[in-house]
C-alpha cells in the first residue's frame, strides 16, 4: 500500500539525513521525499511517499516519532487529503509540434513557462497520476527533460498538522 507520511521537524542541519538514514537503515523504501521550511522558519515540513504493509508503515511512523528532531508525524493517507506534485517538462516544440503541444498542455491545465525556437517548457501540477498521464500522452521522442518535485500533501478540511 502507498502511504503519504507528513512530518513536521526542526529546521536543523542534519535533520533530513536522520530521516533518510532511518529509511535506508531499516530497509523502508522512499518513493519520494519533499521538504521545505514552513511559515515558522524554525520548522520544516516533509512529505514522504512510501510503500509498505500497514505494519511496516506503523513502524515507520513510530520510528520517525522517535527521532529527537521530529515534532509530529501523520499518515495523511489514513483520511481525506490532497496531494500535489509539480512537474517541469521540456519538450521538443518546433514548428511542426508547437500547436499540438500547446493543446496538450491546455488539456492538462499546464502552462508553457518558457519558449525557445524548438522547445517548450511546461509547468504542470496535479497528483502523480495526472503527471504520469501527461507523459504517457505525448510522444516519448519529444520529451527532452523532466523534473518532478515529488508529492506534497495536506489534510482536507480541519485536519491539520501543527506543533
Amino acid at each position: 500500500m502507498r502511504h503519504i507520511i507528513s512530518v513536521l521537524l526542526e529546521n536543523e542541519a542534519g535533520a533530513l539525513s536522520r530521516v533518510a538514514g532511518l529509511f535506508s537503515a531499516r530497509g523502508y523504501n522512499i518513493e519520494s521525499l519533499t521538504v521545505a521550511p514552513t511559515e515558522d522558519k524554525s520548522m520544516s515540513r516533509m512529505t514522504i511517499v512510501t510503500r509498505g504493509s500497514n505494519d511496516v508503515v506503523e513502524q515507520i511512523t513510530k520510528q520517525l516519532n522517535k527521532l529527537i528532531e521530529v515534532v509530529k508525524v501523520v499518515d495523511l493517507s489514513e483520511a481525506a487529503h490532497i496531494e500535489r506534485e509539480l512537474m517541469l517538462i521540456k519538450v521538443r516544440a518546433g514548428a511542426k509540434e508547437r500547436e499540438d503541444m500547446k493543446r496538450m498542455a491546455d488539456i492538462f491545465r499546464g502552462r508553457v513557462i518558457d519558449v525557445s525556437d524548438n522547445t517548450y517548457t511546461i509547468e504542470l501540477t496535479g497528483d502523480g497520476h495526472k503527471l504520469d498521464a501527461f507523459i504517457e500522452a505525448i510522444d516519448p521522442a519529444l520529451i527532452v527533460e523532466t523534473v518532478r518535485t515529488g508529492t506534497s500533501g495536506i489534510g482536507r478540511g480541519n485536519r491539520v498538522l501543527k506543533a
Binding site: 542541519a13 542534519g14 539525513s17 536522520r18 538514514g21 537503515a25 529527537i68
Partner: peptide, 14 residues
C-alpha cells in the same frame, strides 16, 4: 563524527 555515529546514538549534536 555526527554522520558516523548517527545510526548508533539516541541523538547527536555538532
Amino acid at each position: 563524527t555526527v554522520g558516523i555515529t548517527r545510526p548508533c546514538v539516541k541523538h547527536n549534536f555538532l
